[in-house]
């Protein structure tokens, strides 16, 4: 027996783990309670959830002003959340209830029941000409398309065809703000931040 053995972390942790190791079940309900309390106390700046869809998992994020971001899986949700932390606030939690309504409407949209979204949107991630392009897009009816040139005209800058392209490519609210309805003048799909397969899937859904 040594006089004062200096026990190492691993050994003591082993000693304590049987009691304190099994924290996982409690953590799930504690997380839900934290999300709820934070919402009530207005300390949650960005709430998010991930929903399944025919075009892959979608990240939905909302501020207290409205839906602020929809992101495809290929955009990398972890990266997107980091960008939201940098640009809006790091006070971000997975808090599904703030997005219940959006999730339900998206579900209806993908089932073909819903033709337009009735959601409060927060456009703070875009500005200027891009914002005016995005604000025009919901006026393209479900099942219809417009060319980049037509959108440029509608947004008040007929020569800004390329800028329309970049407005669509940086749309923070895809699917809900229907940039997938903007196609090339020759009728081909054009690019899409969710991938051309996703764009094809959305237009096919709307054509049905």
């Amino acid at each position: 027996m040594t006089l004062d053995p200096s026990p190492d972390l691993a050994e003591v942790n082993q000693l304590l783990t049987p009691t304190f190791g099994d924290v996982e079940p409690a953590l799930a309900s504690l997380h839900a309670r934290l999300a709820r309390d934070a919402q009530l106390l207005h300390t949650l700046d960005v709430a998010y959830r991930v929903v399944d869809s025919p075009v892959g998992k979608l990240l939905l994020a909302a501020t207290d002003r409205g839906i602020v971001r929809v992101a495809f899986e290929r955009e990398n949700h972890t990266d997107i959340l980091q960008v939201l932390a940098n640009t809006i606030s790091p006070r971000i939690l997975e808090a599904p209830t703030r997005l219940d309504n959006a999730a339900r409407q998206l579900d209806e949209y993908f089932s073909g029941i819903r033709k337009e979204f009735d959601l409060v949107l927060d456009f703070r991630l875009t500005r200027g000409f891009r914002l005016s392009v995005l604000q025009h897009l919901p006026r393209i009816a479900y099942g219809e398309t417009e060319s980049y040139a037509e959108v440029a005209r509608a947004a008040g800058s007929p020569n800004a065809v390329r800028a329309v392209g970049s407005a669509c490519a940086t749309n923070p609210l895809p699917v809900i703000v229907p940039c997938h309805r903007v196609v090339k003048s020759d009728g081909s799909f054009g690019g899409y931040l969710g991938g051309s397969e996703a764009k094809r899937a959305l237009l096919t859904l709307e054509a049905a």
Partner: peptide, 9 residues
């Protein structure tokens, strides 16, 4: 840059 608080939790 700072991680989203969710990552901290």
């Amino acid at each position: 840059t700072k991680k989203p608080f969710e990552a901290v939790v």
